[in-house]
């Protein structure tokens, strides 16, 4: 979908992207990173709004530097900040955006009503945008990005500033709209759950550098088979008992993390605690969320 080779974007002394190379596959991909990591800069470069200081980037097989404006026919963009005019109605605004994308009046009108139907906006669509709630404004922002049926849509912090209910609804809307279309998604966010809810794969960025690229399912699946154990007494003895059975133990200072193989893992843990004379306070099979993977990388 997008291929970046040694992309550098420098603002004065600050490197927003530092030798950033990546090949993003088609599908629903999340770019995750703390604020200032370079996510939005990458999205804006991929959209042709910013020119990289050096490096090359291709979007949907076309080189950006050669064909910037034409590539945007195939791209939809939902910016992070509020950017919709208050003095137009939702319908008027979407038709205008459709026509600015190159659609005919009839085509833009048809698509506007169809998309607003999917977004479950009833008579509100004829109200002025200035009267909309935050969630409705986000929906309109999303709709304008999808109005011209792009091949890929870039969503920059789509749940930014929304309350939990509106956030959940927004994520469901993104999933709903992208499931009924062939549009691919590039979601830039600093919220892990957004990526877990929407995306198939994730890219983690920090300080303008690529930290990790992986399937969301692989991350969650890979790390889900472990048992979290809390004991009283000398943990070294307990750990050495487990090591005798060739079981690796990770001590995070608060709990011990032991890979889960099958039900016999529990027997091995109980056996080790008896032999090491340690009290077994807690033994729980838990799944490691993306949160811990993310924290591990970021910290």
């Amino acid at each position: 979908m997008i291929k970046a080779t040694n992309v550098v974007k420098q603002y004065g002394n600050l490197k927003a992207l530092d030798n950033f190379s990546i090949e993003i596959p088609a599908g629903k991909v999340g770019i995750l990173g703390p604020n200032g990591a370079g996510k939005s800069t990458f999205v804006k470069i991929a959209l042709g709004l910013l020119t990289p200081t050096s490096g090359e980037i291709t979007v949907l097989g076309e080189t950006l530097t050669k064909n910037t404006t034409e590539i945007r026919r195939k791209i939809g963009y939902m910016p992070e900040h509020d950017c919709i005019p208050n003095e137009m109605t939702g319908v008027e605004f979407l038709i205008e955006m459709g026509m600015v994308s190159g659609m005919s009046l009839a085509g833009a009108t048809e698509r506007t009503h169809e998309i607003l139907g999917h977004l479950r906006m009833g008579e509100e669509k004829y109200r002025l945008i200035g009267e909309y709630s935050g969630g409705m404004r986000q929906k309109i922002k999303l709709a304008q990005g999808l109005i011209h049926a792009p091949e890929v849509v870039f969503l920059d912090e789509p749940t930014s500033g929304l309350d939990p209910n509106a956030r959940r609804e927004m994520l469901e809307t993104i999933n709903g709209l992208t499931d009924v279309s062939t549009t691919k998604v590039l979601l830039s966010t600093h919220i892990l759950q957004d990526v877990e809810t929407v995306c198939d794969s994730v890219i983690i960025v920090k300080d303008g550098k690529l930290q990790m690229q992986e399937d969301v399912k692989a991350i969650v699946g890979e790390k889900s088979n472990f048992v979290q154990v809390r004991i009283g007494g000398e943990s070294e003895n307990f750990i050495s008992e487990l090591k005798k059975k060739k079981i690796t133990v990770e001590d995070d200072g608060r709990v011990l993390i032991i890979p889960y193989v099958d039900h016999s893992t529990y027997d091995d843990i109980i056996d080790a605690s008896v032999k090491s004379e340690c009290s077994l306070y807690e033994m729980e099979r838990t799944s490691q969320s993306m949160d811990s993977v993310y924290q591990e990388i970021i910290e």
């Binding site: 709004l49 910037t68 404006t69 945007r72 026919r73 963009y77 910016p79 509020d82 950017c83």
Partner: peptide
């Protein structure tokens, strides 16, 4: 000025126009 004030200019410039 209005496009800049309400930031809709960013949406226009993300369209296939320079």
């Amino acid at each position: 000025g209005n496009d800049m004030a309400n930031k809709s200019i960013h949406l226009y410039l993300s369209r296939p126009i320079s």
